[in-house]
Amino acid sequence: MLKFLLQRIVQGIVVMLVVAFVAFCIFRFLGDPVNNMVGDSATEEEKEQIRQQLGLDEPVAMQYLKFVSNIAQGEFGTSYRTRTSVIEQMKERLPATLELSFISGMLSILLGIPMGIYSALHPKSWLSKQFLVGSLMGISIPTFLTGLLLIYLFSVVLGWFPSQGRGGLVELGWWTTSLLTVKGWSYIILPALTLCIYQMTLITRMVRAEMIEVMRTDYIKFAKARGLPDRIVQYRHGLKNSLVPVITIIGLQLGSVVAFSIITETVFNWPGLGQMFIQSIEFVDIPVMSAYLIFVGAFFVILNLLVDIAYAFIDPRLRVH
């Protein structure tokens, strides 16, 4: 097990080095970084000085190594746009994105799995059919449209929730949270719902398909033949086996919730990393873009690692090797 973990960690590091290389290439070769940094009035001498300061006269391989070691120390350079440290800027926005993703991930799991179970166990009931129709809509409607529809319904027509921004913040050290106040929740609920609908429908459908499959297997038949009550057969034997493949999907989906919260954050003017990324694209703020790239890469790698651990935890057949 430990060997397996180590192996996965090494693989993760390799992936991160590749991602860092792509980020490095963006930084180094997408336009002249020096020109981007200095104003139009700078002389050739000043430029040369900055070039030396940044180490841009060294061989490319050296620069890459330096780039990687800087990242490892949490040094992502300076934003072209705001002239502040990229890491500071990200640190400021990270809580917003992580909280949004966390809430929407939890929502999609807490709603999706029970709906999946229900529609698998009662395939002919009226409610199951509604779930399936609803999930089809959830998959078909693009996120920005869902967001706009929710804003129209809950902010414009009903006026229950604010439509823009993040409020009701409480500071815990450098982390700002909106989860401790009612006001904070009223801000996060709409974007979280928007973000979760797609994942939720996917999870519902996965759980349903897997569970229907599992309920047909011999060991379920045998469990029934042993006279075990439905509750044990369905949950202890059925659900646990259905969740093995579902976990992969959930892990990958949570990754994409963070990575692709860009659209939702834009629609709701949510001050998270996605919004920062959009703004940095507009200004060709390359250090921020490459930092965001590395962040998303790292997030996926860590999630995958967690999924692997969860897998081995649930399925004993994977533990042996």
Binding site: Y219, R236, I314, D315, R317
Partner: peptide, 10 residues
Amino acid sequence: DPLTSLNPLL
């Protein structure tokens, strides 16, 4: 089939 009659996770 004894291979499929038992729950693999327990």
